[in-house]
Simulated assay, not measured.
Amino acid sequence: MSIVVTGATGHLGRLVVEALLRRGVAPGGIVAAGRSVEKIKDLADRGVVTRRADFADTASLQEAFAGAEKLLLVSATTPSERIGNHQRAIDAAGAAGVSLIAYTSTLRAEATTMTLGRSHWETEQYLRERHRNAVILRNGWYLDNYTEQLPLYRQNGVIVGAARDGRVSAASRADYAEAAAVVLTGEDHAGAVYELGGDSAFTLAELAAAVSSATGEEIPYQDVPVTRLAEIYREAGLPAEFADTIADADRGLALGELFTDSSDLRKLIGRPTTTLAEALANAR
């Protein structure tokens, strides 16, 4: 029996595989699944089982999940395709006899108004209806969403957003990956819903101040309307649907939908979450 991690060719899935290995799971007991397994050949070289899993291809999902005891369903990227992709994966896992499914959702999925959130809530409902041993990992925003833009912030000399004075409880991808590994290797998590976020929330103005401090450059925050932010993303080359979705996340941030005072993440990983200052230092 094995633990399957979908999206292992992506950032979060890959980090979960690494976290499982650090926790002592034998490489042969981990299935790293993704559309392009050539991207994770190095994991195969270390003994991790790699299998192709395309959310749009039910047959590939059934093959990827065969013999699995536990599954981490890392949410699909494209919002308009997410629900159908997730439903196929959940059905395939049920057919394969997977005993526990953990799903990476978003904070307060039942109440969020964000475009990203609606598909997560529908997925949660579908999963609960069809699998009694489900674990919901409601991941907050990634610190990496900001630190990966550090070169762009410095190039432009400004951080642009539409979040007003909303606070975001961001944590690193590595923090969320470690929490997923804890759940996948532990007991008594079935049925749990974890609201996961960083210990120290911040506004985007505070982000700008932290970036300025870390770089030694004055990089202010500029707030714009959500529609203008989406235009800026499209002008930068992002696909229209993705640009609109990311801009809408700032609208949710402004409304407090990316804030949590839950200590679930800190409790699961057994340590304080990564701070903004630490993330910026690591990024530099």
Rank of each mutant, 00 (worst) to 15 (best):
L207I: 09
L253C: 14
E195K: 00
L238I: 10
F242E: 12
A210C: 13
L196P: 04
P220Y: 08
L258D: 12
A254N: 02
L238H: 14
I219L: 09
V183W: 07
S213N: 12
T203D: 05
V183K: 11
A254P: 01
D261R: 13
L196K: 06
A247L: 04
G256N: 09
G191W: 06
P225K: 07
A214E: 10
G237M: 07
V211D: 04
L255G: 03
A201I: 02
F259S: 08
A254Y: 01
A240P: 06
G216W: 03
A230Q: 04
F242N: 09
D223N: 14
A208D: 11
F259K: 03
A208V: 10
S262D: 10
T227H: 12
D199K: 09
I246Y: 11
A201S: 15
G216A: 09
G198T: 08
A205D: 13
D261M: 03
A179S: 05
R234G: 13
V224C: 05
L265F: 06
V193G: 10
P225I: 04
D188K: 14
E257L: 04
T260K: 05
L265A: 07
E231R: 14
D250N: 14
L196W: 05
G256W: 03
G256I: 08
D250V: 00
A254H: 01
Q222P: 09
I219P: 06
V193I: 14
G191Q: 03
F202A: 11
F202Q: 07
A190G: 06
P225D: 12
A209T: 13
I232M: 12
G197D: 09
L258Y: 11
D261E: 13
A179M: 03
A214N: 11
E241I: 02
A249S: 12
G216Y: 06
G256P: 09
L258M: 15
E218L: 09
S200E: 15
F242W: 12
G216D: 07
G237C: 05
L204G: 00
P225L: 08
L238T: 09
D250C: 11
Y221R: 10
A209Y: 00
D261S: 14
T245C: 04
A236D: 13
